[in-house]
């Protein structure tokens, strides 16, 4: 059985297990935390696609998330559009927003991309606060984002079982799309080649800029989808989603999971969402703690949790390196008699 097949089977087994587990959980707080986990899985997988696999330093991930949430909320509140339509439309809008970010900077060196995307992240809250006239709700944000309705089924905030399945399905589809269709598909191979060697990728006829643009746009659309779900789940959307807390959370998720190391990012999303809930007691020290975790994890486990697994293997392997002494031929260096020192 190949690694790919194992991953696919493992993925299906995990989704099935989650689906069966829901009624057994019962407790609505735990269901709530699981819904958050699933939404963060979407956001972090999309980020991993760009940061980890394509090697694009995108720090506007939360900005895109916010754009998705705001777009869906504003469509539903402002135009009365049914959320079932507003959510996919928000994903498209977020994708377009991603494309707009990517256009000016993806031709440039990595550092510029990092700084530019981060500048977008820092600039967006002000824009949202000043955009009251356009329906952003200013500093207090959007309140009363309506619940998603499919036929007679209403996914209100209190309908935890309903949301559990909805978010699980959304996360499963997103993860499948990102890791199994894109990363392992033709596109994915193209940009893994790009990340590892641009010269090699070019020799295969891969257009770097276009590939990166497509990927960035796709990742932004998925992220916006996650943001839209989030907005309809919690019912409010404020500029505070762009604050330190969420930014730190997704950073910890990705660094713990390891960049470009499926299923590390997903694991990170669960660990951090649950951990963050457990840390609620810590109050204002929680963010300090999260920041410290980012630094420590990046330093101690540069590839995330997968390091804990491979480190042991490597240590074992290092001992076994055979240096082929037997192969070394006799040295026959020559001396030049006509020219001695």
């Amino acid at each position: 059985m190949t690694g790919e097949t194992t991953a696919r089977l493992g993925f299906l087994a995990a989704v099935t297990a989650f689906a069966i587990a829901a009624p057994l959980i019962g407790d609505s707080y735990i269901l709530h935390v699981m819904v958050l986990c699933f939404i963060w899985v979407i956001v972090v997988s999309a980020w991993d696609l760009v940061m980890g696999y394509a090697g694009i330093f995108n720090f506007a991930q939360l900005a895109i998330f916010a754009v998705g949430g705001y777009a869906s909320g504003m469509l539903a509140i402002g135009t009365g559009m049914p959320p079932v339509l507003a959510v996919p439309l928000a994903a498209v809008i977020a994708g377009a927003f991603g494309l707009l970010i990517a256009l000016p900077c993806l031709r440039l060196r990595g550092e510029y991309v990092a700084l530019f995307t981060f500048a977008v992240h820092l600039a967006l809250p002000t824009l949202l606060e000043k955009g009251r006239a356009w329906g952003t709700g200013g500093a207090s944000g959007l309140v009363g984002v309506p619940p998603i309705r499919i036929g007679d089924l209403a996914f209100t905030t209190s309908n935890k079982i309903g949301w559990y399945y909805l978010a699980l399905a959304a996360a499963a589809i997103s993860v499948w799309l990102i890791y199994f269709v894109v990363v392992q598909g033709r596109w994915g191979r193209a940009f893994v080649a790009l990340r590892d060697s641009e010269a090699f990728a070019r020799s295969l006829g891969i257009d770097e800029y276009r590939t990166k643009l497509k990927l960035f746009t796709l990742s932004a659309a998925v992220t916006g989808f996650g943001g839209a779900l989030y907005a309809h789940y919690v019912g409010v959307m404020t500029p505070r989603v762009l604050g330190n807390e969420f930014f730190l959370m997704v950073m910890v998720m990705l660094s713990i999971g390891g960049l470009g190391r499926f299923p590390g990012a997903i694991f990170g999303a669960f660990l951090v969402t649950v951990g963050n809930e457990l840390l609620r007691e810590a109050g204002q020290y929680r963010l300090l703690f999260l920041g410290a975790i980012v630094v420590l994890v990046v330093i101690l486990l540069p590839n995330g949790v997968s390091d804990l697994l491979t480190r042991r293997k490597k240590a074992a392997a290092a001992k076994n390196i055979e240096i082929g002494k037997a192969d070394v031929p006799t040295i026959r260096s020559g001396v030049n008699p006509s020219c001695s020192p």
């Binding site: 031929p329 026959r332 260096s333 020559g334 001396v335 030049n336 008699p337 020192p341």
Partner: peptide
Amino acid sequence: VHAVHEIEEGRIAALAHA
């Protein structure tokens, strides 16, 4: 040169000059 060493595939290979 006073002495020559030939390197081939990561090994000192042959007497190059005498």
